[in-house]
Structures are given as C-alpha cells and as structure tokens.
Simulated scan of single mutants.
Amino acid sequence: MSNWQMLAEEIQQWSSPVQFWWRDDDAVANSGALQRLLMLAAQFQIPVHLAVIPESLQASLSVINKVQHSANCYVLQHGYDHRSYALEGQRKIELGGSQDIPSLLKKLALGQQLLKSRFGEQYLNILVPPWNRIADEVASQLPAMDYTQLSVLGSKKQAESDFNLNVHIDIIDWKQRCFAGEDAILTKIISHLREQRLAGLDRNIKPCGFMTHHLDHDLNSWLFISQFFQFCQQQENVEWLSGQQLHQFTNVS
C-alpha cells in the first residue's frame, strides 16, 4: 500500500473533517516564485498565509491585495528584520538572544502597525518567529500586544499551548536545502493525524499546519505541493482553514 493510500485511509477514519492550514514563510516582494504560489492557492482554492518580514517589505508585495488573490491570501508577521541575535552557543534566533527585550518588543510593534496599515483585513495578528524560535520572556508579552496567536514549528518536545497555532509539516530538508521527499513528508502527516485522532477524543483538535517557503522551493517541492493539494481536493473529509477561522483555536485569558 502506498503512503498516499495510507493517508487516505487515515483521513477516512476521522469522524469529523481533517483540518489543515497553510503557512508560507519569508515573503517580502512579488516574484516568480510568489506568483507560482498564488496560482496554486487560486487553482485549488486553498488559502495561503504569508509570513511577511516587515523591515524587508517591498511595495511590489501589494500584488496580493488584488481581487484575484485577496480571497485566498492572508498576512502574518514574521518577526521584524529576520536577523539572528543568537548568543554564543545558541541556534539562530531573532526574538531573543542578545536583544534587549523592551527594544525588541518596540520593533515588533512597529512591524505590526506597518503590516496592519499596508494589508488591512488581510492581516491577522499572528506572530511567526523567524527560525520558529522565541524566548519565553518575549512570548509571554504577546497577548498584551494584541497578538491573537503564536505560530512555530510544533514538535513532540514542545507542548502546544492554547495560544499556539503551529505548523507541523515542513516540506524542506534544511540541512540539504532541498525537498524533504514525498515518503518522508507523507509519513509525517499520517503520524501526526493518527496521534491527534487517538489523543483528541475529548478536546478540540487544532488543524495540521502545512509549511512552505516559496523562495526556497526546488522543482520537486512545487510538484509535491500540487500533488498534495490535488489529493486533498479528492478527499471528502478534508477542510482547509483560513483567516478568522484560525482564531477559534486560541484561548487567551
């Protein structure tokens, strides 16, 4: 049995729709890669949530405001400058490291206001930390800054709080900087869905987050995205969430 068949069987075992959401990181400008991404969103009617770097934002990204894209495209905040401030021995991190916390929060607020003013209702108050890392003392301040959710790369090592709306499936192997491979990705999706189904009988299951990076895709990455979206379109029990629908999964006290 192929992994595609195994994924279809897993989806069929769910009593409620299997929910996904799509996050694409590092958007700053219009490009051939962005146009290809938007074409896929329109072709399959799957909304894409672009994590935009405020400091690097270029006017050409306003292409996503056009009517043909606006219904399938939302904007999230991808840190502020996407630079690493890691201390010696730390992995790359913008939202932490050597940065002074008050100054860092001030920069985040500037980025937040810029994206709000530029993208209006397409902007969602969701923060996506570069490299999916954020210091605890920064994360704790986000609700007071009117962020509704925090989105990192979820893992078994990291408990998902009510405030998190994470991604779980990364299609890129960053050590090799290429497509991670069809079998590896499908196996990860199947495993995640199975764990959620078996553990989620008495709680609200959050959607499975599908993460892409349009500027870093090789041909196999693009081919897989198209094939995966086509597969999902053929499943009666799959739902892709977008925009304000995502806010139902947060519970900020």
Rank of each mutant, 00 (worst) to 15 (best):
A144W: 03
N237T: 15
S253N: 11
P102R: 02
S242W: 01
R177W: 01
G96W: 04
Q45P: 10
L50D: 02
A42Q: 11
T250Y: 12
N251I: 06
L50K: 12
Q13M: 14
P47Q: 09
Q233L: 13
D146Q: 14
L142N: 02
Q176R: 05
I190F: 09
R118Q: 03
C208G: 04
I93S: 03
D81V: 07
N251E: 15
I11Q: 07
Q112G: 02
G181C: 00
S103E: 04
Q235I: 13
P130V: 06
A29N: 07
A51I: 09
Q141R: 13
M39L: 10
K66G: 00
L223E: 00
L38W: 06
Q58M: 05
H78D: 00
Q122T: 03
I171W: 01
Q19R: 15
D173T: 02
D24I: 05
A29E: 08
D81A: 12
Y74H: 12
S117M: 05
L104C: 08
S226E: 13
L105K: 01
Q122L: 09
M1H: 13
L110C: 08
A42N: 15
A109E: 06
P207W: 07
Q43M: 12
V252R: 14
M1Q: 07
Q196I: 13
Q5I: 11
V252P: 13
K106T: 09
L219V: 08
I134S: 01
Q99E: 04
Q19I: 08
M6I: 12
V138Y: 06
S151M: 04
L76R: 06
G200E: 03
F228H: 02
A180C: 06
W21H: 11
H214G: 01
N220E: 00
S98L: 10
S60N: 09
F119R: 02
A159V: 13
L198T: 14
S103D: 02
H217C: 00
H213D: 12
I189Y: 01
Q234C: 12
Q248H: 15
G181D: 02
N132G: 08
K175L: 10
W222L: 01
C208M: 12
N204C: 14
A8L: 08
S117G: 00
F249P: 05
L104S: 00
S2W: 14
L223Q: 11
S60A: 07
F231H: 10
A86T: 13
T212V: 06
W131H: 06
L7N: 04
D173L: 06
